[in-house]
Simulated scan of single mutants.
Amino acid sequence: MFEQYQLPLYRYLLQMSRNEQIAEELLQETFYRAMVSLQVKDMIQARAWLFKVARNLFIDWTRKSKSEQQMIEQIQIKHESISNLGNPELQFEKKTRQQELEAVMKQLPERMRTIIYLREIQGFTYKELTTAMNLTESQVKVTLHRAREKFRYYDQQKKGGYEYEE
Rank of each mutant, 00 (worst) to 15 (best):
N84G: 10
L85E: 12
N87M: 15
P88A: 08
E89P: 01
E89A: 09
E89T: 06
E89V: 12
L90D: 12
E93I: 03
E93W: 05
K94S: 04
L101V: 06
E102F: 12
V104P: 00
V104M: 00
M105D: 11
M105G: 02
Q107R: 07
P109N: 13
E110Y: 10
E110F: 09
M112T: 06
M112D: 08
R113I: 01
R113Y: 07
T114F: 00
I115K: 02
I116E: 02
I116V: 10
Y117S: 04
Y117G: 06
L118I: 05
E120K: 11
E120H: 14
G123E: 06
T125R: 09
E128M: 13
E128H: 08
L129K: 01
T130Y: 12
T131L: 15
A132P: 02
A132S: 09
T136M: 09
T136Q: 13
E137R: 11
S138P: 12
S138C: 15
Q139D: 14
V140L: 07
K141C: 14
H145G: 09
A147F: 03
K150V: 10
K150L: 08
Y153C: 06
D155I: 00
Q156W: 14
Q156K: 08
Q157A: 10
Q157M: 11
Q157S: 04
K158M: 11
K158W: 03
G161C: 04
Y162R: 08
